[in-house]
Write a protein that binds this DNA or RNA. Structure first.
Length: 653
DNA sequence: CTAGGGTTAG
């Protein structure tokens, strides 16, 4: 019976030339399927089909739930039953109206004496409960089923994986197989969302191969997503490359995988191949492409994508990605323009705009925007508040920061997380309020982590509070014995107060534990080649020219009032000449090399493996003004856009 | 009756 069922369904599946299911024909499909099912003997072999059945069905098709329920009433009074098709349509009608009460009545009706619902009818009921988010009810129905087929199991598995109850979804798959029911492509594409561990995923993958279902496009895209979610991009690419037929969603999956893992170049390369193979870019594609532009700070490419976005003017997610791209690429005018003309804005739109303003140094505007959000926008969430606190922190607005921090719990019921505490601590630290910082750390509702203590440590260094700094550094090392920065700082603090024994002790510990500070490295792309620099680098072929130019700049800037800022420096353990190494920090070498290599380009784009150094920050700012360039430095923390002598990232150095 | 891709922070 199952085979017949499957065969018929495949016959009425409407596809286009590329074998993709066509949308907008579902109504006809329902009719077709219904007519066929009604003519099928196993369905209509129910005793005493009531004459009301056809009008019940009609009301259901017209989505007239009250009338349909009236008929159900009369049938119950007379003790007669309709057929399974009518009931399944009735259940679908309840679902369409989100009518829980009516749905439960139908539920009781088909389980009353004198009627034995078919598995497929119970499946419809399961689906109704699942879609109404009543998972307990669904589970109860499922538990009582005398027979469960693939659809029953798959419905439950997809319910749990959608609700992120991944353990339950995975367990159900095991039980299903133990029960002798074979998973199909629907089952696999659902269960793939629930794979949290690589070993589970590998097992599911091998199950898919054994069942010969790897060529199904749904399964393939789900596989790519699953590997991507676990950071296994090579596996994801492997699955992608095995594709023969071609499918735009599979393309979107692999592009999204790279865009989400900050490999913008690969994402963009894939996008080009996709277009070359004749697949048009849709909303999802463009969203990922924009994210790739954002990740690589490619403002001009982002602008070109913007033109294509206009085709999907009303797409919220796409507009949010566009908005974020303009914010992160430092073009706040464009961002504000997009934001102002978005017809629908959600929390993400508002949060993006608020954080974008804050991160680009427009703290007051950010806070004003938050005020108007409170009046006429959606309810702020965890991330919105983070942006607001960030704005306060950049503007040094201590009282306001406290106010927003307290109000998040009272007004919006959001519990402050570690990140909120870090923002507030940062704010207090910049204001030099070390005591308040310590007090806040003790009051925190979550355990302090490395970032918490590092914030305190930074503040202590700026305030030159040796004792507290020592304490903070030790707390960091308790949590992470390998934190090189903490050792170096601790050693510097001791050195500054001439505690040489302690300095030696720290050094001994470091070498005993084999800890070395990761060297800072900056790189820039010129003619498809990466040019990388480390401090005092002499290996670059043009190093003499770079150093000459660097000396020239430093002379010019010194005349204009530039004072090297050594306060931010980690003093070298080997005691190298610090002034010299500061002068030859990798960022400076890369910036100068960029200016030499691109005499005509407006924008110089540099990457760095560590957080940008404070002195280089000032240097970049001054060079941008002197040379009338736009210098973008991307470090693991954030983007720094230096334009006309202003760092748009908030001038907190 | 069951299945796929995209956005904010860190």
């Amino acid at each position: 019976m199952d085979n017949v069922d499957k065969e018929k369904h495949e016959k009425i599946k409407v596809t286009n030339v590329r074998n993709e299911p066509m949308k907008g024909v579902s109504k006809h499909l329902t009719l077709l399927r219904t007519t066929w099912l009604r003519s099928c003997s196993y369905v209509s072999f129910q005793p005493n089909i009531a004459p009301e059945t056809s009008s019940l069905l009609n009301h259901c098709y017209n989505r007239d739930l009250p009338r349909a329920m009236q008929i159900l009433d009369t049938m119950e009074k007379r003790g007669v039953f309709a057929d399974a098709i009518a009931y399944s349509e009735l259940i679908k009608c309840c679902l369409a109206h989100k009518a829980v009460r009516e749905g439960k009545r139908v539920h009781n009706h088909i389980f009353s004496n004198g009627y034995r619902p078919k598995t497929f009818l119970i499946n419809t009921l399961l689906n109704m409960y699942v879609k109404l988010n009543l998972l307990e009810e669904a589970q109860m129905v499922f538990d009582k089923m005398p027979e469960r087929n693939v659809v029953s199991w798959t419905t439950m598995i997809s319910a749990y994986s959608y609700a992120k109850l991944n353990d339950r979804a995975m367990k159900l798959l095991v039980f299903m197989i133990r029960d002798g029911v074979m998973p199909n492509m629907y089952t696999f594409s659902s269960v793939l969302r629930a794979c949290e561990r690589l070993c589970d995923l590998k097992q599911v993958h091998s199950g898919i191969l054994k069942a010969g279902l790897e060529s199904d496009v749904f399964v393939r895209s789900a596989l790519i997503d699953a590997y991507s979610k676990l950071g296994e991009l090579l596996e994801a690419v492997g699955v992608f490359r095995e594709m023969v037929t071609g499918d735009s969603v599979v393309w979107n999956s692999i592009i999204a995988a790279f865009a989400q893992h900050s490999d913008g170049d690969e994402a963009l390369a894939l996008y080009k191949s996709m277009r070359r193979e004749g697949f048009p870019a849709d909303q999802s594609t463009l969203t990922s492409v924009l994210r790739a532009c954002t990740g690589s700070s490619l403002l001009e490419l982002g602008r070109q994508v913007h033109v294509h976005v206009l085709k999907f003017d009303q797409d919220l997610i796409l507009n949010n990605a566009l908005l974020d791209m303009y914010c992160k690429c430092g073009s706040l005018e464009d961002a504000k323009f997009i934001f102002s003309r978005m017809a629908v804005k959600d929390v993400i739109s508002w949060s993006t705009m608020i954080s974008g303003l804050a991160q680009n140094g427009f703290s007051v505007e950010a806070l004003n925007l938050f005020d108007s959000m409170k009046v006429s926008g959606p309810r702020p969430n965890y991330i919105t508040i983070l942006g607001v606190l960030f704005a306060c922190s950049h503007a040094g607005l201590v009282n306001e920061g406290w106010g927003y921090f307290r109000s998040m719990k009272n007004l919006y019921g959001i519990d402050p997380g570690r990140e909120h505490y870090s923002c507030l601590l940062d704010l207090l630290g910049r204001a030099g309020k070390l005591d308040e910082m310590v007090k806040l750390i003790h009051e925190m509702t979550c355990e302090p982590d490395v970032v918490t203590w590092r914030t305190l440590l930074d503040a202590c260094r700026a305030q030159r509070n040796v004792d507290l700094a020592t304490y903070a550094a030790k707390e960091i090392l308790k949590l992470d014995q390998q934190d090189a920065g903490a050792y170096v700082l601790l050693s510097n603090i001791y050195a500054n107060s001439k505690r040489w024994d302690d300095v030696a002790e720290v050094r001994r510990t470091m070498s005993a534990r084999g800890i070395r500070k990761e060297p800072g490295c900056s790189w820039i792309e010129v003619n498809n080649q990466i040019h990388a620099f480390i401090v005092g680098d002499k290996s670059h072929p043009q190093i003499d020219e770079i150093n000459r130019k660097l000396d020239e700049y430093i002379r010019k800037l010194t005349d204009a009032g530039y004072v090297p800022d050594t306060n931010f420096m980690l003093k070298d353990l080997e005691g190298e000449q610090s002034e010299y190494s500061l002068r030859h920090h990798s960022e400076k070498l890369a910036i100068v090399f960029g200016i030499i290599s691109f005499p005509r380009e407006k924008t110089i784009r540099i990457w760095k493996n560590l957080k940008i150094c404070g002195d280089c920050h000032i240097f970049a700012k001054l060079i941008a003004k002197l040379e009338q360039r736009h210098i973008v430095i991307r470090d693991p923390i954030r983007y720094h856009h230096f334009q006309d002598g202003v760092c748009s990232c908030g001038d907190y150095w």
